[in-house]
Design a protein around this nucleic acid. Structure first.
Lengths: 230, 230
DNA sequence: CGCGATTTGTGCACCCCTTCACAAACACCT
DNA sequence: AGGTGTTTGTGAAGGGGTGCACAAATCGCG
């Protein structure tokens, strides 16, 4: 599930700091989750710790990496080298964690040929060749919203079955294709909501605020500091 | 809840294309959710549509904007102008949706003074002044992981109660401070997991794959194309 | 003015996730 | 070798979200 990458990151941090084993509670703290939840998650993987001792860090890293399919480096194609695409192309957090940006693509021919971080931008029409050459397994869309659906269709057409979408729009794709969406503005809006709520509550601590801000408790009780979605 | 921003985005798109009213099903499709869920969400807001007609687009935009606290433009401070921070500073998706990047901050004095998108980078030690001047309500952390906790502490110290964290680490903050985390590598790893699963299943359609890949169904059935977390 | 079509709002059942709490298992120490 | 303390793995309870299905309400048309 979606917490495994977080566990993996925490495990790498623990390994770097010299830990050989971790208790479920130690790892849970590092990953920011409940220890019972972590144990249940790990038990679903079939990976066994040792009672009285904990989990072997190196073994668990191998197990989780294997489940996530990170044993080999995955090649991703990045479509759209605008503001955001530029940053993603240079983001070193990908290479450190088993991903290689293998191709930069844009629909704007005036951008084709530009070199970013050692990669030359190619035209989106070359996608069939690119995917074949580099054995791309994931496509990242960092285009403006109006172009995103067309790009997604092209990616699907050339056999990409996993898409990370930064464009603020809903993509429709065939069954069997996974889409994950990251909308930076939405994240801020959610924070704005909490901020607005806190402001209303402190202003009217007795009444609980106006009808608009005094939502049923469940609405505001949302998971936070979790990796996007699940 | 976390779906409201998505509804709001869909509503703006509908308004731009000239729609006066929307049915719950139309809006649900545009936002990529179930229509019953959407109606229930909207009913929790206390906003009323008209039976037999649908929802008034403009009215609903006002309602949701009000609930999210987007009636006034919110000022955000961006800490860390490295690769990612640079892109975020130039990202136009923020300004279009009620946010204004009011300050760029970095701990590296060699970056202080640099101008990005019309804003001058200032030193992180000036945060108290900056927050006071610009009435910052949200802080965005785009620093490397080792620096993130210290930055978060500084933000909290100067009164920021909402933080969007792009650094791959868990932040510990006092109660009352909201942290949302966006880890781009984790998104890719989740896609990698699905990709790995799909590959295993197609390779061994009869047996269902090895023990490692044949996880209990629930593990793979994760929400997708949802805005990060909730 | 009345009727049918359409759409909202919601009660209900279901299912998954979360969390607590405890028994089983292991290592260490004496 | 046995006792003791620690930690895992899991059964059970609780809560919350999700989706179905239907009653209530509104509009448009004859």
């Amino acid at each position: 599930m979606s917490r495994l990458p977080e566990y993996l990151r925490a495990l790498h941090a623990l390994a770097d700091s010299g830990h050989e084993t971790v208790s479920s509670e130690g790892l849970a703290n590092a990953a920011g989750v409940n220890s019972a939840k972590l144990r249940k998650d790990l038990s679903h993987l079939g990976s066994y710790g040792t009672r009285g001792v904990g989990y072997d860090v190196a073994l668990l890293i191998d197990q989780i990496s294997s489940v996530l399919g990170l044993t080999q480096c995955r090649a991703v194609a990045l479509v759209g080298v605008g503001n955001l695409g530029h940053a993603l192309a240079g983001y070193d957090g990908f290479a450190n964690r088993g991903f290689r940006i293998a191709a930069l693509v844009d629909a704007d021919r005036s951008r084709v040929g530009e070199e970013i971080n050692g990669l030359v931008v190619r035209h989106v029409d070359e996608l069939p060749d690119i995917v074949a050459e580099e054995s791309i397994s994931i496509g990242v869309i960092a285009t403006p919203a109006p172009a995103a659906q067309a790009v997604a269709d092209q990616l699907v057409a050339v056999g990409v079955t996993s898409i990370l979408n930064f464009a603020p729009c809903v993509l429709s794709v065939p069954d069997g294709v996974d889409v994950r969406k990251v909308d930076l503005a939405i994240e801020l809006q959610i924070l704005s909501f909490h901020e607005h709520r806190k402001a209303s509550l402190t202003a009217l601590p007795a009444t609980g605020g106006s009808a608009l801000t005094a939502l049923p408790g469940g609405l505001a009780a949302t998971e936070t500091q979790e990796a996007i979605g699940t």
